[in-house]
Structure formats: C-alpha cells, structure tokens
Amino acid sequence: TEYKLVVVGAGGVGKSALTIQLIQNHFVDEYDPTIEDSYRKQVVIDGETCLLDILDTAGQEEYSAMRDQYMRTGEGFLCVFAINNTKSFEDIHQYREQIKRVKDSDDVPMVLVGNKCDLAARTVESRQAQDLARSYGIPYIETSAKTRQGVEDAFYTLVREIRQH
C-alpha cells in the first residue's frame, strides 16, 4: 500500500529536517529553504509493509500558489509548527483551512506536530497545542528532528489516521 503524505507549515519550522531524519536517519543542521522535494521510503507499520511517498513543501509565502496542487494529491498532512515560534503555531489554522477548502472536506487525515521540542526556549505550551488538536479532532505529537524523538511516531500516526479514514 502506498501513502501520499504531505508536510506543511511555516518556513523554518523543520519540515525538511523531520523528513530527512525519518528517511535518512540524520539531522540536517543548516537551513536551506525548500521549494519542493519528495522522498520515498518502505516501512512496516503495524505489520503492514507500506511505501511512504512524502512531499516536503515550501513554507515560504512566495510558493503558496503551489499549495493547491499538492493538497489535492496528498492523502494525509503533517501540519508542523516549531514550539519556539508562536507565529508558526498561529499559521497552522490557515494551512488547515486551505487543506479543507482544496479537499472540499472537513475530515482530512492530519496530525499536528510541534517540532524542536529539544529546545528550552518554548513559547507554545503543550497544552495550547493539545487544545488546538482536540478542537480539530486530530492527534498532537511533539518531535525533535535533532534527537529523533517522536519522528517515526508522527509519520506513522498519520498513516494510521489515513487507514482509519
């Protein structure tokens, strides 16, 4: 089974770092803004072998026109913010609204991801993020692309959301 996953969120929150940590098991430290990259990885989730087709997208506003296209083809979405960047957390709402509009559905598989949880300088409390996820009816997972904490959990949870859909 193949799953088309799309990673969305503001610029600099760590979308590529999360994806590369999942696929290649290493942490990319330097920031190089993405336009669009796709990665494929075969994994076993709950005993089922599946192929993850992951689209890593641009957070930069100037590429926002490309969003409709990949939102149409994606089956599930990782909505990523950084726990030390309140603005990126506030941006999640717009991504969710755009996904709902493009998919013409209120019920699209999504996982809210709070990345950079290895950093002490948190400005978005776990509780705020949990409340937001609960209001959307989606899971919330904290990750660190640096330490790998929660990385597999985030992507695998999204696959489970798609399966249950």
Results as ranks from 00 to 15, higher is better:
Val124Ala: 13
Gln149Val: 14
His165Cys: 14
Cys117Thr: 13
Met110Asp: 02
Asp46Lys: 13
Val13Pro: 10
Ile99Gly: 01
Arg163Met: 08
Ala154Lys: 02
Gly47Asp: 05
Leu119Pro: 15
Lys146Gly: 15
Asp106Gly: 06
Ser64Glu: 07
Glu36His: 04
Gly76Glu: 00
Gln130Ser: 11
Thr57Cys: 08
Tyr156Ala: 14
Ser135Leu: 14
Ile23Pro: 00
Arg67Pro: 15
Ala120Arg: 08
Arg127Gln: 06
Ser64Arg: 07
Glu61Ala: 11
Tyr63Pro: 15
Gln69His: 03
Leu52Asp: 00
Glu48Asn: 04
Ala145Phe: 07
Ala17Glu: 03
Glu75Lys: 06
Lys100Asn: 09
Gln94Asp: 14
Phe155Thr: 12
Arg134Asn: 11
Asp46Cys: 04
Pro109Trp: 02
Arg40Ala: 02
Arg101His: 04
Glu97Asn: 09
Asp107Ser: 08
Leu51His: 12
Pro33Asn: 02
Glu2Ser: 00
Cys117Pro: 08
Lys146Asp: 15
Gln94Ser: 08
Asn25Cys: 03
Leu78Asn: 02
Asn115Ala: 14
Asn115Tyr: 05
Ser126Lys: 07
Thr86Met: 13
Lys103Cys: 10
Met66Gly: 15
Glu36Tyr: 03
Lys4His: 07
His93Arg: 10
Val124Met: 07
Asp106Thr: 03
Val159Trp: 12
Thr34Tyr: 00
Gln21Ala: 11
Arg67Trp: 11
Leu78Ile: 11
Asp56Ala: 00
Arg72Cys: 10
Gly74Cys: 12
Ile23Ala: 09
Val44His: 07
Gly59Tyr: 07
Gln94Thr: 11
Asn25Gly: 03
Asn85Gln: 07
Gly47Asn: 00
Thr73Met: 13
Tyr31Ser: 07
Glu97Met: 05
Lys87Tyr: 04
Ala121Phe: 09
Lys87Ala: 03
Arg127Met: 14
Lys100Met: 09
Val102Arg: 02
Glu152Tyr: 09
Thr147Gln: 13
Arg40Thr: 04
Arg101Tyr: 01
Thr34Leu: 00
Ser88His: 05
Asp53Val: 04
Asp153Asn: 05
Glu142Arg: 11
Asp68Cys: 10
Glu152Asp: 09
Thr19Trp: 01
Lys116Met: 15
Phe89Gly: 03
Gln42Asn: 08
Glu75Pro: 02
Ser135Glu: 06
Leu18Cys: 06
Leu51Val: 05
Arg122Leu: 11
Glu90Arg: 05
Glu2Ile: 00
Leu158Asp: 04
Asp37Ile: 00
Lys15Ile: 00
Tyr136Thr: 09
Cys79Arg: 01
Val159Ser: 10
Asp32Ala: 12
Ala121Asn: 09
Gln42Ser: 08
Thr147Gly: 14
Gly59Asn: 08
